[in-house]
Nucleic acid binder design. Structure first.
Lengths: 193, 193
DNA sequence: GAAAACCTGTGATAAATATCACCGGTTTAT
DNA sequence: ATAAACCGGTGATATTTATCACAGGTTTTC
């Protein structure tokens, strides 16, 4: 059950068997159904989630009920609302599952204790954070550009998303409407001939 | 000289005098003039910068020579290109000073050694990262929305920027043209009467 | 297995935003 | 000290993108 996570951690740092045991002790595995919430607007975020299998999304619901997707999480990604967790304030985001999924759950305090008890986990998490930050910065950069460039960047970096999530969710991720995305795709196919 | 940084660290964690000494040993203070580069496209980023006084910007130069500002750094902010530093690949960003500034410089390896030697610095840096990530996520959210909402969010969260940086830089930060920003401002003044 | 809900594509139109051009006022460089 | 560069505002216009409406195909639900 935990092998997926161990394999991922092994790509960054080495854990002793004893440390793996300590880690397991604070992990809880959880099955979530498609459309099921892990976090809802107004909650205070208390957990960090690691996707073993499936797909999560994090989004804000604007006025006019429009859903703005901040992030997806597929296999081997962590997802949480750090801001809410760090400050103890209610979150503005929702996290739910786009597919039936299996996740590992770590509670906030247990996570911080892990950092203290297992230096390697501390390094692993910092690496995860740095990586997440770097990717988010790149996304920020593209969100400052017109729709066509956003889509081009998406195809270049994340084209495999297309197999997993619907067009309208990709459009939301790119900050454009589904209609505009549909037209950009048509245009791209045309220009590649 | 280092009191600014110590004061900032103190807001998050406590350092012993011995630890402060160790920290000072790896810090180099540096004066940078307005327009002077700290990092240029193509460099591999090797340093993390802490602004004691002044203001930095991090930006990408697109085709058509357009500057896309990813981030500002004022007093008490750290700035670096984590992605380049983490992966050792050349950066796509430039970092330069918008005002004559004083910064503290830490070299990559020294920084990682700090994390190992001083647990409190480790926690401090993780907090910085979490905070930076949370803010960037909020920015991502607003970049998915129309110009008027971006500007409104800017005024709400960062209006003090306006005293420090030019309109065109703010426009770049918001991902809109300076003309559009100018019109939004005019419109805001009008509607507030 | 029929009805409802959902998803993608596409046309017509409206709204938002960018581009281009020009202005006067300020700062910078020689 | 003067010219040059920069800066922010504003009008006219072009381009991009959103909105609205509808249609056919698929999936979900009861």
């Amino acid at each position: 059950m935990y092998t997926t996570l161990f394999a991922h951690i092994d790509q960054h740092v080495s854990l002793t068997d004893k440390e793996k045991e300590m880690l397991c002790a604070v992990l809880v595995s959880k099955k979530v159904r498609r459309r099921q919430y892990l976090l809802q607007e107004g909650d205070v975020c208390q957990h960090d989630y690691f996707v073993i299998d499936g797909c999560l999304r994090q989004y804000e619901v604007g006025e006019n009920d429009k859903e703005n997707i901040v992030q997806f999480a597929f296999e081997n990604w962590w997802m949480s609302d750090w801001f809410s967790m760090l400050t103890g304030t209610p979150t503005v985001y929702n996290i739910d599952a786009l597919e039936d999924s299996t996740v590992l759950v770590v509670e906030k305090k247990a996570l911080h204790q892990l950092f203290i008890d297992i230096p390697a986990m501390d390094i692993y998490f910092r690496n995860m954070l740095l990586q997440a930050y770097a990717y988010l910065q790149r996304r920020t950069l593209y969100l400052q550009k017109p729709a066509e460039e956003r889509y081009a960047a998406f195809v270049k970096h994340y084209s495999w998303f297309e197999q997993r999530v619907s067009q309208q969710h990709i459009a939301s991720f790119l900050g454009i409407t589904r209609e505009t995305l549909s037209r950009l795709k048509a245009q791209q196919i045309k220009s590649s001939r």
